[in-house]
Structure formats: structure tokens, C-alpha cells
Simulated assay, not measured.
Amino acid sequence: MSKPTPTPYGVAVASDEDKTPWMSILLWCMGLTGAAIVVTALLGLLVAQRPGLLSVLAVGVVVVVFFGLSLLVGHLVGQRAPNAQLAAFMLMYIVKVIGFGAFLLVPHDPFWFNGTWVTIGAVVSVLVWQGVEMYRFSRVRMRIFSETEAGK
């Protein structure tokens, strides 16, 4: 855990050791969502055999890849051009919407596909990912101004 840096006003803020929180959030989201996907996939295996397992795993991978790309891009852009982070997140949102739309065009009749378990897997993975992401982001303390500029 980083040590707080005192400010001229006596308020402690997070240290500048890690300038972007996105990689830490990404790792937490991937870990907990991965665990939820495995548990859901095992339930799918028990209830619907192999199609349930494969359906949950497939949709789980899609959710993790698409959601993870946003945080990865946010991390990379935050290191190089912090002022461009909002634009990068907006661009990645557009990419995700188009990507999910394209995914819906994939034929849904392979032998391993089970619509019920795709839906269950998608709901579980999205809810866990979003919950972890919101929780971790709510714990981030970021500077909103530069102390060197504020002291002028």
C-alpha cells in the first residue's frame, strides 16, 4: 500500500507511484470474474452437460476480453497521455458495442451452444465484472489538480 503524500492543506492523497489505477482494477476484475465463470461453468456442466459448460466458458471469455480491453487501453493511454483517457474510454466503448453486435451475428446453432447457459454466463460475468470494477474504482483516490500549478 502506498504512503499518503501530505499536501499544503493537510489533506492526504494517494502517492503518485502508480499513476493509473486501471491495471490493478483489471487484475481484480479478471480474477474474481474468472472465478465466477468457473463456478457457473461447473453448474452448467452439472445441469446441461458439455453444452452448458462450453456455453458459459465461451461467453465468459468474450465478456472478459471486451471489458478487459477497455481497462488495458485506459492503463496504456494513462501512462502516455493522461489527458486522452476519456477519449480512449469512449472509443473503446464504441468498439465494444460494435464487437458485441458482430458477436450476435455468429451462428448460434453449434452442437455445444446452450442459449440458457449463455445467458446465465453472460449475466453472471457482466455483473461480477461491473461490481468489482465499481468497487475497486470507488476506492481509487486520484489527484484532480497538480500541486505545482495550484501553488502558483
Rank of each mutant, 00 (worst) to 15 (best):
S2W: 10
S2A: 12
P4A: 11
T5R: 15
V11T: 07
A14H: 03
S15L: 05
D18K: 14
W22M: 10
L26W: 09
G31H: 02
L32E: 01
G34S: 00
A35P: 00
A36D: 02
I37C: 06
I37D: 02
V38R: 07
V39K: 02
A41D: 04
L42N: 08
L43D: 05
G44E: 07
L46H: 14
A48N: 10
Q49P: 00
R50Q: 15
P51H: 03
P51E: 10
G52A: 03
L54K: 11
L54N: 02
L54C: 10
G60S: 01
V62Q: 14
V64E: 12
V65T: 12
F66Q: 06
G68W: 07
L69N: 11
L72W: 15
H75L: 10
L76V: 08
R80K: 14
N83Q: 14
A84Q: 12
A88C: 03
M90E: 07
L91F: 13
M92P: 01
I94C: 04
V97P: 00
G99Y: 13
A102L: 15
A102G: 05
A102R: 05
F103K: 03
V106R: 08
F111G: 08
F113Y: 15
N114E: 14
T116M: 11
W117R: 07
T119F: 14
I120Q: 07
I120E: 03
G121T: 04
A122K: 09
V123R: 07
S125Y: 08
V126D: 01
W129Y: 08
E133I: 00
M134Y: 08
Y135D: 00
R136F: 10
I144V: 09
S146W: 12
S146C: 01
E149P: 02
G151Q: 13
G151A: 12
